[in-house]
Computed example of a mutant assay.
Amino acid sequence: MRPASTCKPTPGCSPAPAVVFGGHDEYWSLPMRAAVTRARDAGTYLAFLRANSVYRRIRYAPDPHGPNRIVVDYKDAGVDPIHHAPGTTVNWRQNPFPDPENSLVGMLYECFPAVGAFTVRDPNFFLFAGTGAKAGSAYPGLVGNEADRAYPVKATPANLQVVAHSPTTCDKRHTFSDATYYSVKSGAGVFATGTIEWVRALQGPDPKYGVVPASVAFAQKVTLNLFTALAAGPMGKAHPAIGNLAGVHDLRTTSTGTGGPIGTGSGR
């Protein structure tokens, strides 16, 4: 990857070549999201290797040791002293000032507890190279714990490419977990696995979710391909997204999942 010191934050050249989110990155403040969005728009590639990212909006407060020491998160916006401002601690998709996570991740948080096999929809997707995957290839257990799903709703990237569309059970309800990719004019590409189990499965089989050796090998190869592409760059220009969401499904509501509805407030 190119050294940060040789690159100014201009379109196509960002100080950080890539940012990979490998944890359960649910809680984001306004400055956190703004910084990552600016980085993407300056050419930084993003990879969300879990699900439920950018779901909960928080803010920071000081304590006697200094500023930004306390995470503030009122679970009920009505009791938040700041309840009519962009910094209100709610789900990012909720009123007031809704800004759903799909504008950055590409998808929306769908449900918990999720169980399913990661099912390939687009075997020609560049990150699936060398895996032997075909359309419909299913990798048991890779959809686990929590899942995201793509929806053709406001703020979803117009060129969103759904590369896996996995039948998923969430607490006896049937839905899907998606894996997606989109690219932007800065040259950045954004990949999301849509499942929390992905990173854990890289370590080996997981009896809890039924992750078998074939699933581990698939996840490891895709992740290796991803890091290779991130290092080579610019991922979004080398591999522009081919939008296909309209051909996957046309659900225009998130009522099937536990992520909740999208607000219609005065925000973005």
Rank of each mutant, 00 (worst) to 15 (best):
T156E: 10
C170M: 05
E146S: 14
V36E: 13
G259C: 03
V71A: 10
P64Y: 02
P113C: 13
K185M: 05
T168Y: 04
A147I: 01
Y182V: 02
I82W: 09
V162L: 12
P100T: 02
T193N: 00
A51S: 14
G189K: 01
D250P: 12
M107L: 08
T6M: 14
Q161Y: 06
K134G: 15
G204H: 10
V162D: 10
D63R: 02
K134W: 06
A155L: 11
H239R: 02
A42V: 12
T168G: 08
A201K: 06
L202A: 07
Y60D: 02
R40L: 03
K221T: 12
P3I: 02
V162W: 00
T37C: 01
T175A: 08
H65A: 09
P167E: 04
G132I: 09
P157M: 10
F48G: 05
H65E: 10
N52R: 09
H84Q: 00
T253G: 01
R56C: 04
G236N: 07
K208T: 03
P205E: 02
F176E: 09
L160F: 03
A219M: 11
S137A: 11
S166A: 04
P240I: 13
G43I: 15
R40K: 01
L224K: 13
I70V: 15
S266H: 05
P207Y: 00
V105W: 01
G265V: 04
F191K: 05
N52V: 00
C170T: 05
L251Q: 09
A138Q: 03
F118G: 05
D25W: 06
V71R: 04
W92D: 05
A61S: 08
P167A: 07
T169M: 10
